[in-house]
Amino acid sequence: MSDPSAASIVSTPRPEQPTEFGAPTNAGLPASAKQQKPRGLLADAWLDLRRKPLFWISAVFIALFVVMAAFPSLFTSGDAVNGALSHSRVEPSADAWFGYDVQGRDVFARTIYGARASIVVALLSTIGTLLIGGTMGIIAGYKGGWVDGVLSRIADIFFGLPFVLGAIVILTTFNGSGTDNNEWQIMGLVIMSLVVLSWPVVMRLMRSSVLATKEADYIVAARALGAGSGRIILKHLLPNCLAPLLVYGTIMVGSFIGAEATLSFLGIGLKTPVVSWGIMISEAQNYIRVSPFLLFFPAAFLVAAVLSFVTLGEAVREALDPKLR
């Protein structure tokens, strides 16, 4: 005769077996938690960014400006270069939403087409600054010693150059009157001046990140296993030092848009026939009292673009820094 208590024991499901570390596997966890994988820094940052309204607002504005720069014909069919003097300083109307400038050109068309030069200069300047400054910072921080000393002193020399004065010297030396240069040559000179005067900041930022990371346990372990300098830099140092550069690069785009407009306003940056917001503001400065719309519309687009990139950079900085969450 069988024992009913023994049958009940046999039919009872066995609990989770402990692992070799003494903790049961997936014990007491819901099914969704058992399948969830740990998130990395970028995944956590993206999860945090999705909850921020300012991030989405700035991202929408930036996407709008990028599309405007890439495909201006989607927004206007007007001529941004040629105009009729009979329309000189005609105020905004249904035919011309932003009015006409002194030479009778459509201000709305020029504002749309002006986004291309301003954003292209800012993006290319940011990419060049990050590449040059980031490379110098990695080399200085990883090598140390006399290499770090030499590169740091070179960066100090460029730090001592006032931005506007240095840009004036560079652009007046290589640009001159600007009559012999085409549109892309003028833009290339402006980009070169911005990169030359801005890379030391990125170099110091990357150098400090490398110095704080290169003595980490996983770097020491990789070096002990025989990994070369190139593999350590590309596979370990660079991915863990990109967060500060990503934040600063986003803010830098907005700063370079303002810098390009400043140089063009002073007459040493982009020049006609290039269309940019800075050139439009420069041309409107003598007509602020009689025709303020000539200054208002390009200045409004300029301020909106700069604020969008700066706001996006601040949101990314808060998302990547756990202390600010």
Rank of each mutant, 00 (worst) to 15 (best):
A6T: 14
I9H: 09
I9A: 15
V10F: 14
P15R: 12
P15T: 11
Q17F: 00
G22W: 04
N26T: 09
G28M: 13
G28N: 15
L29Q: 15
S32C: 02
K34T: 14
Q35S: 15
P38H: 10
G40R: 10
L42Q: 00
W46F: 14
W46A: 14
L47G: 14
D48V: 00
L49R: 04
K52I: 11
K52S: 13
P53W: 12
I57C: 03
S58F: 12
A59E: 00
A59Q: 04
V60W: 01
V60D: 00
F61M: 08
I62Y: 09
A69V: 09
A69R: 11
F71I: 11
P72Y: 04
F75Y: 08
G78N: 13
D79G: 00
N82C: 01
H87K: 08
S88K: 06
P92H: 07
P92G: 07
P92I: 09
A94W: 15
F98N: 07
G99T: 13
G104Y: 04
V107K: 08
A109S: 15
Y113T: 07
R116N: 12
R116E: 09
R116Y: 10
V120L: 10
L124P: 01
I127P: 01
G128C: 02
T129V: 14
G134N: 09
G137Q: 10
A140F: 10
A140R: 12
G141K: 11
Y142S: 02
W146M: 14
V147F: 11
D148Y: 03
L151G: 03
R153S: 02
I154S: 04
I154T: 09
F158C: 04
F158W: 11
V164S: 02
G166N: 03
I168C: 01
V169T: 05
I170N: 00
L171C: 08
T172E: 00
S177N: 14
S177K: 12
T179G: 02
T179S: 10
E183N: 13
G188N: 08
V190R: 10
L194G: 03
V196Q: 03
L197G: 06
P200F: 07
V201M: 08
V201K: 08
M203G: 05
R204V: 06
R204T: 06
M206K: 12
R207D: 05
V210E: 07
T213C: 03
K214W: 03
D217H: 12
Y218I: 04
I219P: 04
A222K: 06
A222Q: 03
A224Y: 12
L225G: 09
G228F: 03
S229E: 08
G230R: 06
R231C: 08
L234Y: 04
K235V: 06
N240C: 06
C241V: 02
L242K: 00
P244E: 09
L245Y: 01
M252Y: 09
M252E: 11
G254H: 12
L263M: 13
L263P: 05
F265Q: 06
F265E: 07
I268D: 01
V275N: 09
V275F: 07
I279H: 05
I281L: 15
I281Q: 12
S282L: 01
Q285K: 14
N286T: 10
Y287T: 12
Y287W: 09
V290M: 08
L295P: 02
F297N: 07
F301P: 02
V303P: 06
A305M: 14
L307E: 05
A315K: 07
R317A: 08
E318S: 11
E318W: 02
L324K: 13
